[in-house]
């Protein structure tokens, strides 16, 4: 189980690197979308690992809210570039 989590952290490092080196804002947004999904899945895994119900609930809420916030942010950034 530990090694699965470490493999997940390695997968998480790829979009972080991408967000660091790329200069286009939409590529950064893509990296952020990837990171948001990955972190919430990792939270779910940890909640199952520790058999902690409250962490699982928070993970699902963050999964929902992170995606919703991302859509909001995408629309705002689109407005910035328009005018």
């Amino acid at each position: 189980m530990d090694s699965i989590l470490i493999a997940m952290i390695l997968a998480l490092l790829i979009p972080i690197y991408e967000a660091w080196q790329d200069d286009d804002i939409w590529q950064k947004m893509l990296a952020f979308a990837s990171i948001a999904t990955k972190t919430s899945i990792m939270m779910l895994v940890i909640s199952v690992l520790r058999d902690d119900w409250s962490i699982g609930v928070v993970a699902v809420i963050i999964l929902c809210v992170g995606n919703a916030g991302l859509m909001l942010l995408a629309h705002l950034i689109k407005r910035i570039n328009e005018t």
């Binding site: 804002i25 952020f32 990171i35 948001a36 972190t39 991302l70 942010l73 950034i77």
Partner: peptide, 14 residues
Amino acid sequence: PYHALVIRAILGAI
């Protein structure tokens, strides 16, 4: 500043 805000969101997730 805009790129910094997106990275701030990444920081929040982490």
